[in-house]
Amino acid sequence: MTALLLVRRVPPARLELTRTTARQWDAALAGDATVQWWELVDPAADDAAPPAALAALRPDPVTVRLAGVATPPGQRDRAVQVVVALIDALRATSALTLEALPSAELSAILRDAGFLPAGDGRAVLEL
């Protein structure tokens, strides 16, 4: 049986675990101290259990910027899953748009999650 995975903003008590996990998956993203972390987790798992995937945001009341996604190697499906769950969570906020300046790899993930090209290399999704 597959565990139900939910997205949530990383609680302060899990930030060190998040940073450690992110360093294993994407060292450049993990080194960005300006991002807000969101995690895809099994809500029934122990608090010491690592997330299934991570998303890093630069929040704004209207336009949220996706800085990147971190997953274990070969887990592209988890990257799409965390982005889709994040979109659903952000729809409950005042944000109107989620945008990113994606790399080639992230572009395919965002396209699968419903983002559209917006010029200047950006990809956007209206919430």
Results as ranks from 00 to 15, higher is better:
Ala3Ile: 09
Ala3Asn: 15
Ala3Lys: 15
Leu6Ile: 01
Arg9Lys: 13
Arg14Trp: 02
Leu15Thr: 12
Leu17Arg: 08
Thr18Arg: 05
Thr18Tyr: 07
Thr20Ser: 15
Arg23Ala: 15
Arg23Asn: 05
Gln24Pro: 00
Trp25Lys: 00
Trp25Gly: 04
Ala27Ser: 11
Leu29Glu: 09
Gly31Met: 05
Ala33Met: 08
Ala33Arg: 15
Trp38Glu: 04
Val41Leu: 03
Val41Pro: 00
Ala44Asp: 13
Asp46Gly: 05
Asp47Asn: 07
Asp47Glu: 09
Ala49Arg: 09
Ala49Met: 12
Ala49Asp: 12
Ala53Phe: 02
Ala53Pro: 11
Ala56Gly: 09
Leu57Phe: 03
Arg58Cys: 12
Arg58Gln: 10
Pro59Cys: 09
Pro59Tyr: 06
Pro61Met: 09
Val62Gly: 12
Val64Asp: 06
Leu66Arg: 10
Val69Asp: 00
Val69His: 00
Pro72Glu: 13
Gly74Leu: 04
Gly74Pro: 10
Gly74Ile: 02
Ala79Ser: 14
Val83Trp: 03
Val84Met: 05
Ala85Met: 01
Ala92Val: 04
Ala95Arg: 02
Leu98His: 03
Ala100His: 05
Ala100Gly: 06
Leu101His: 14
Leu101Asn: 10
Pro102Leu: 08
Ala104Leu: 12
Ala104Phe: 10
Ala104Gln: 15
Glu105Asn: 08
Leu106His: 08
Ile109Phe: 05
Leu110Met: 14
Ala113Arg: 14
Leu116His: 11
Ala118Tyr: 11
Ala118Pro: 06
Gly119Trp: 12
Asp120Gly: 05
Val124Trp: 06
Glu126Gln: 15
Glu126Trp: 14
Leu127Ala: 06
